[in-house]
Amino acid sequence: MTRQKKIVAVSHCILNQNVVINDWERAEGAFPMASYLLNAGISFLQLPCPEFLELGMNRPPMTYQQYQSINGYRERCRTLLHPIIQQLIAYRENHYHYLGIIGINDSPNCSISGQRGILMEEFFDLCQKNDLNQAFMEIPLWYRDDQQRNMATLVETFIQGDPLYDN
């Protein structure tokens, strides 16, 4: 068996909906599109969930501005991301293909388009400083396990490197 050597970074809740605040989960465990990526031979690099680490399982829904106002929160996000960036650099040095990141639209930390989330602001800044690919896609607001619409097409477009997703 030969490795595909393709990697995608993902927001934590894409593989673990258990960290999502109560009643906001949109999948039973992991988003089903994760299976599609695995079947395509793509590996995951899972980002930490700063919301869960900072405020725990039973945290209330909060906005970007509320997270931004937590003393030292942005710096803790950046610290959490350093090992991820180091791994992406190591993969690049060993000729792996980093496809980009999959975020969560309208998240105070993991949104990429529109009001970028705090974690993603720090992630993209570190990627830029380390000359890492900044291609991305997001799980749309409409997505649910029972309402996947054209998600397979969106994922396929992303893994094929469509420039519409470049930052």
Rank of each mutant, 00 (worst) to 15 (best):
K6Q: 06
K6I: 00
K6V: 00
V8T: 04
V8H: 03
A9M: 08
A9T: 12
V10Q: 00
V10F: 07
H12P: 05
I14K: 07
L15C: 10
L15S: 15
Q17V: 08
V19L: 11
V20C: 13
I21E: 10
N22H: 07
N22D: 10
W24I: 01
W24Y: 14
W24P: 02
W24C: 05
R26I: 12
A27V: 02
A27N: 09
G29E: 15
G29I: 06
A30G: 07
P32G: 13
P32R: 11
M33Q: 09
M33Y: 15
S35E: 15
S35A: 14
Y36P: 04
L38C: 09
G41C: 04
I42M: 13
I42S: 13
S43F: 08
L45R: 09
Q46A: 15
P48W: 12
P48Q: 09
P50C: 07
E51C: 15
F52W: 11
E54P: 00
L55E: 14
L55I: 11
G56R: 12
G56K: 12
M57I: 15
R59I: 12
R59N: 05
P61W: 03
M62P: 02
M62K: 13
Y64H: 13
Q65W: 03
Q66G: 07
Q68E: 13
S69P: 07
G72R: 10
G72C: 00
G72N: 10
R76V: 14
R76Q: 14
R76F: 12
C77V: 11
C77K: 15
C77A: 13
R78M: 07
R78P: 00
T79Y: 13
L80A: 03
H82V: 08
I84N: 04
I85T: 09
Q87T: 07
L88N: 09
L88V: 07
I89A: 02
I89M: 08
Y91F: 09
Y91N: 00
N94M: 04
N94C: 03
N94L: 10
H95P: 01
H97R: 08
H97P: 05
H97C: 03
H97Y: 02
Y98Q: 04
Y98D: 05
Y98N: 10
G100R: 03
I101L: 04
I101T: 10
I102D: 01
I102F: 14
G103W: 06
N105C: 10
N109V: 07
N109W: 09
C110H: 13
C110G: 07
S111V: 06
S113H: 05
R116D: 06
R116Y: 03
R116T: 15
G117A: 01
I118Q: 08
E122Q: 15
F124V: 09
L126T: 11
C127M: 08
Q128R: 14
Q128G: 00
K129D: 04
D131G: 00
D131M: 01
D131L: 01
L132I: 02
Q134M: 02
Q134F: 02
A135L: 08
A135I: 02
F136E: 00
F136A: 09
I139L: 10
P140T: 12
L141Y: 09
W142I: 05
R144S: 04
D146W: 02
N150F: 06
M151K: 02
M151G: 01
A152L: 07
T153E: 01
T153P: 02
